[in-house]
Design a protein around this nucleic acid. Structure first.
Lengths: 225, 225
DNA sequence: GTTTTATCAGAATCATAATTCTGATTTTGA
DNA sequence: TCAAAATCAGAATTATGATTCTGATAAAAC
């Protein structure tokens, strides 16, 4: 749920800054209804008319606030990213992120990711689907991932055995598997594990931890591929 | 490259079976050009007019063969899936798939997957993008994954230590990570590793192997998530 | 040869939503 | 209280491609 506070000082290209209180309320309703609607349809399916009807607004009002549909979804995305970004920073700098060992850290990362994906599933799906037509559509989301990695990597290196070689590469790849697996669930829900399955976070955390710690692949493996 | 032989006896809903040789040639040109075009654009961006121009055909000819664009891409997908399916079966039953140990098997699976994804990247992307509007758009691809798993699982179980618990779940999840990571590369190319990177197959194989063999997550891990 | 079946060329429809417009009203900030 | 800023209602306009049509031609089947 996006609230008044989240809009404070928020700007986005193609979105006219709201000068009056009722405009801010309108934008808030549009954002929250948009988030809901995107659970059921994707970018193309998101009808401005439906969105406005559900938000007790008129089409004209929408267009007096946003340049077009793209700008609307873009703004919604930036808003969510901004909110998430400050949450991530707070978690790492405020001692919420585990600092004792790798398994705990990865468990927390996987669990947090799942919560986030469930909350914004619709928006994430719309962004993924759009990521081609407008290449930069996924960029803000990508930066969120990079932020997470930039905080996690130093800890991972601290937790790993000093001799561990190539650990940075493996950590990067582990995150790529994490986000890949989750994006894929949002995209096509392949089964058998889904965003809602309690085993998913555990599996992801275990796979990442083991891969990161395992050290370089043995020669026999490397040469066979 | 799709050839004459691949079309032999091929049928697909919304596609009129070609009775004459020149019709078969037309369909072949459309399929191959479609495959090429889809490397650059996705489903929505695939213009029938452009496709026909590139295939030396007229729009009318296209519509005398396919009910609509959806049917065309659907048919192309089914054709590729059918071809791949028989390849997978041949590999497993003809002794191409490694039968000596898990690391080799997974290395081969990852490498083959990468080759396949690179070859059909455009079609895969279009199918992923469409997977929402028409839920069943991804179904044939999904079945390909299930086929692969149904062949690999018995071998995995044979290779694993007899005491290994929950190995079937871990194997399923490992494949879900594999396809998720690859689909994500096709979808948004997140970096740092891409379909073209030689390290990708090695990393994927190592991650899957280690995860499958590692046994159930230690309690400390399980309880932390 | 003759009759279907397919394709050609290319213009004419259609469908669907996004987007724009217009002339009131209403709300807000000074 | 007033002028400016927003919104309302809802019709009119646009844009974009897919899809359909039509009257020749060409190729294949028998």
């Amino acid at each position: 749920m996006i609230d008044d506070a989240a809009l404070e000082g928020f700007e986005s290209p193609g979105m006219r800054p709201a000068a009056q209180a009722r405009s801010r309320e309108l934008v808030l309703r549009l954002f929250n209804e948009g988030l809901e609607l995107l659970r059921e349809v994707d970018f193309d399916g998101l009808s401005i008319e439906t969105l406005c009807a559900r938000s007790d607004a008129t089409v004209g009002a929408f267009y007096s606030r946003f340049e077009n549909k793209e700008a609307f979804v873009g703004a919604l995305q930036r808003l969510v990213v901004a909110k998430t970004r400050s949450g991530v920073i707070a978690d790492y700098e405020g001692g919420v992120a585990p600092a004792d060992n790798l398994a705990h850290l990865m468990g927390w990362i996987a669990k947090s990711a799942l919560v986030w994906y469930r909350r914004y599933e619709g928006l994430i799906r719309a962004s993924l689907r759009r990521a081609n037509g407008e290449r930069e559509m996924w960029t803000p989301m990508r930066e969120l991932g990079e932020l997470q990695i930039s905080y996690a990597l130093p800890r991972i290196q601290r937790f790993a055995p000093p001799a561990a070689e190539g650990i940075e590469q493996r950590a990067h790849f582990a995150f790529q598997m994490l986000f890949g697996t989750l994006n894929n669930m949002v995209m096509i829900n392949p089964g058998p594990y889904s965003l809602g399955d309690p085993a998913t976070a555990r599996m992801l955390a275990a796979a990442m931890t083991q891969f990161i710690l395992a050290g370089p692949a043995p020669e026999a493996l490397g040469s066979s591929v």
